[in-house]
Design a protein around this nucleic acid. Structure first.
Lengths: 367, 367
DNA sequence: GTGAAAGCGCTAACAG
DNA sequence: CTGTTAGCGCTTTCAC
């Protein structure tokens, strides 16, 4: 903090190790040793203090980039995510930040709303020679094909991946099972499903698993209507507004969204349409973002902790960076039941008279 | 994409310009010229194609870090924000990403929930010799004192700052005016205010401006009770739960939160306490995050576009990087009125019989 | 047109 | 203990 005359104040250039060396009357290597704490039995006390004084006076801070060039270790890990809109990755990023060793700098690469060109983002990151990569939404094949990886890569939430390196996954199957059980228990048979346009593996699995678990219980009495929307409130709002008449015609009594952010859009659309949730239609999502606690009504959701995902990824990366063997990690899914789901109420309709081991649904009253 | 034998497949090392040069039978400098498009009249057609072929075959990508060392331009801009919890900065980051030139890589530095040590984050970023910095939550004084800045720094949402460089601000005064007018118009007199522990200038201004605008209308009939909570749903939930009895005693009929995320926590707390919003207490926030559309009830909020803030900052930074003069930018605030605010209903109470030019409030009924 | 040489700021290996 | 030397991968004069 003690700086007689500002460091490089006139030049606009930051002081370099050489500047420090000159001022302290030593060589650059000595400065380096001191800076990196390798002075034990290598630098005289006298020079140590001289160097440290010069550092203070100049306000010197070693350039990690130049250091990286010299050592081959950049001190940087990249996080690559498809978007920030969905808010899921916001938590992932936080988790990574929390789990990363303090001397690592986080480089964030994220797609724009319309352009999720992860390939080129990855290629660019790779060119930067980062020390490690944590990514989601890039297939293992793409990862391999693009370039041979020279650093550990942790792949997130990519079920069915054949990525040989570290991975962190969710137990989506169990999540789907819990949700299916919940919905069927409430008497739902005709279910709409909203999923992102980008059909990433995690979304394929969420959809397929839920459909399968429902079918296992309901057999042919089940209907499963799939719609697509981007992972944003507005997009989901538009699509649900658009689809509602058709769904109503099909006696849909529950809507499941592949991501909570879509469910928010759905709630918005249904509110505007004057369709009461859950009386006329139940709504549920995946992710359990914190906002799901305060939506109107609070949203039933399959909790997949994005924070844990990021945190776990960072820990795995730390291990890999230290050369240890790293085992894949699987995080649990847990259904959070809230007020957005309730008993199914089928209206009279020629098409589909529901009949099943019901519990509470089945009233013929309108709303 | 055409790679006969994987690039550096065996070594784990990425191909360097020298590798390319050797393969193409030219010198490294020639490779550099081609890569940077400076071949016009400097490199023979023959060598150009040879180089390009070698690049393709090897899958070469110049290391931007090494290039940065050589050129002094790192191709990197840093975004420094206090936290990611509040979700406000998530949008700021998106906005920056959208506004940044495509060849710039974004470096994100964010504080942890408990530790907002922006000083050290900044110092670390500075050491990286980034090309530009966009930051929020760091005072101009701190910015200056820490080190002389060698690169453009855009300061965000820091009202009253004396930062000489580019800034982007919100018209908070106007926002407070709109909100005060709205609340007073509904008959509110006793107002609780929730603000973050960290008393950043933007929060000081929000609070002071609102209090002032309310006082201007209400004079001594106003009560303004301030509480503190971190910018997270849970923290606000806890604090509101804790304070509610006192506020009720004081006949508080409206709660304003300095950030929407806090308002969400407040809604949660009030719902748990069984206090109807807005019948018993109105709730409003600042920021207007997208989620405020779907809370129960939808939240009245002073819209401050975080996305615009980030986008504007990126544009200003682009200008500064090109050496242009940059003027400070001020973004408008706009009150979004939704169902979380309604007429004040004062209960009978010994302490404070409200009386003012009322419109709709003033019923003596309980709820 | 072209390559050799120097240097960006730092670290590592090696003589003194 | 200490300074010299040699790079890390790239760009940029500057002679040829």
């Amino acid at each position: 903090m003690a700086r007689k005359d500002g460091p490089a104040s006139l030049t606009g250039r930051l002081p370099s190790a050489r500047d420090v060396a000159e001022r302290a009357g030593v060589s650059a290597s000595t400065v380096s040793l001191v800076v990196n704490g390798k002075y034990e039995g290598r630098v005289s006390r006298r020079n140590q203090t001289a160097v440290r004084r010069a550092i203070d006076e100049l306000g010197y801070r070693a350039d990690p980039v130049a250091r990286g060039l010299a050592t081959g270790r950049r001190g940087t890990v990249a996080v690559i995510v498809p978007d920030l809109d969905s808010h899921f990755f916001n938590y992932v990023t936080m988790g990574v930040g929390m789990g990363l060793k303090a001397d690592m700098q986080l480089l964030l690469a994220f797609g724009q709303p319309n352009d999720h060109d992860l390939q080129s983002m990855l290629s660019r990151i790779l060119a930067m020679r980062v020390d490690g990569i944590i990514c989601e939404g890039i297939s293992a094949a793409a990862l391999r094909s693009l370039s041979d990886v020279y650093c550990p890569v942790v792949v997130l939430d990519d079920p069915g991946t054949d990525w040989a390196g570290p991975t962190v996954a969710f137990d989506l199957l169990d999540g789907a099972e819990q949700l299916a059980s919940h919905l069927v228990g409430l008497g739902h048979r005709h279910i709409a499903y909203l999923t992102p346009e980008c059909d990433a593996p995690t979304f394929q699995v969420r959809r397929a698993a839920l459909r399968e678990r429902l079918a296992a219980r309901l057999g042919s009495t089940m209907k499963f209507l799939v719609g697509n929307a981007d992972t944003s409130i507005e997009a989901a709002d538009r699509v649900v507004t658009d689809r509602w008449p058709a769904w109503e015609r099909e006696n849909v009594t529950a809507l499941v969204c592949a991501a909570d952010i879509q469910a928010y859009g759905a709630l918005l659309a249904l509110a505007r349409l004057g369709v009461p949730v859950p009386e006329v239609i139940s709504v549920a999502g995946f992710d359990d973002l914190p906002f799901s606690l305060v939506t109107g009504p609070p949203l039933t959701s399959v909790a997949l902790s994005a924070h844990e995902l990021g945190y776990g990824a960072a820990r795995l990366l730390n291990q890999a960076l230290q050369g240890g063997r790293v085992d894949p990690l699987t995080l649990p899914a847990r259904l959070m039941i809230r007020q957005s789901t309730g008993p199914a109420r089928y209206l009279e309709s020629g098409t589909s008279p529901p009949r099943h081991r019901g519990n509470g649904g089945h009233q013929r009253s309108g709303v």
